[in-house]
Simulated scan of single mutants.
Amino acid sequence: MWSMTQGERPSSPAPALDSLTAGVQAAAGKGPPPVHLWNPAYCGEIDMRIAADGTWFYMGTPIGRPALVKLFASVLRKDPERFVLVTPVERVGIRVDDAPFVAVAMETRGEGAGRALAFRTNVDDWVIADSSHPLRFEREATGGLRPYVLVRGELWARVSRPVFYDLVELGEERDVAGVAMFGVASAGTFFPMAEAAELAAQLAAGEDAP
């Protein structure tokens, strides 16, 4: 059931799901738990995985209770070595296939230069893309782009395909260091997606835009 990273030894057996849930509930209070302040002993890896589509699994079975997923998500943290669920008394590793969250909706707030783009994640967190919560665009093997928005700490949300289409509709060209770039602006920050000439060539060839 449990596995350890090579060379590490747990200080105690990794907790079962019920025990971990109880610990998370005890740690939860009003507002986001201060997981960045907690540094309990590492207790091993629990058989929990977050799939690329944002589904949480425990021992190969999807966790069907949204409230439980939100509870675990509230104590998720990215340590240098791994993703962990952390409480004041225990810290366990989990697997994440891509990003731990998915941005499933977007809304615009304000207009013109003051416009901000707010994203809702699959666990109902809201984040506004800005200099502290940037958008990034990774190149896929197929040539397309894979977009992400930083939620908190080192935890990113992959922007779902329908939301990405909405994002592209808001895009514009700007000069970045002498290069015409296509991107999107939010809260006073411009986030380049790709070179404008590259996108024009794709469209001319009949290929899908990123």
Rank of each mutant, 00 (worst) to 15 (best):
L170R: 14
A52R: 04
R109G: 00
G31A: 00
V75M: 10
M48A: 15
T121L: 05
A177W: 00
P147N: 07
F101R: 06
A201E: 11
V84Q: 09
V69N: 04
E107P: 00
S12E: 13
R65S: 15
K78D: 05
E138P: 00
F137G: 02
V24E: 02
K70W: 03
E8Q: 09
P192T: 06
V96F: 08
G54V: 08
R109N: 09
G206S: 11
E154Y: 09
P210N: 09
M1P: 14
V123G: 03
E207I: 04
V104K: 13
A113S: 15
V163E: 12
G143H: 02
D130Q: 02
K70H: 14
P13W: 11
R82K: 13
T55A: 08
F83T: 10
S74G: 12
A41E: 13
R174W: 07
T121D: 02
F83S: 07
T142C: 07
L76T: 13
V75T: 14
P40D: 10
H36V: 13
A105N: 11
P13Q: 12
T108G: 01
L203D: 10
S132T: 06
G44A: 09
R65D: 15
R146V: 05
A118G: 01
T55K: 03
T61W: 02
E195Q: 13
V176Q: 06
S186Y: 09
V127M: 03
F190V: 04
A52C: 01
P10V: 15
M181E: 09
P40V: 08
E198H: 02
W156L: 06
L37Y: 01
A103Q: 03
F137P: 04
G60E: 14
T87L: 03
T55L: 00
G23P: 05
P40N: 03
A194P: 00
S74I: 14
P10C: 09
E140K: 07
D18V: 15
A103F: 08
I50M: 06
Q202V: 10
E138C: 00
P13K: 06
Y58V: 11
R161F: 13
R82N: 03
A99H: 01
D130E: 10
T61Q: 10
P62E: 03
A116N: 03
L68C: 04
A26P: 03
P13F: 07
E195W: 01
P13N: 10
E154R: 11
V69F: 00
P40E: 01
G54S: 07
L199S: 01
F72Q: 05
F119P: 08
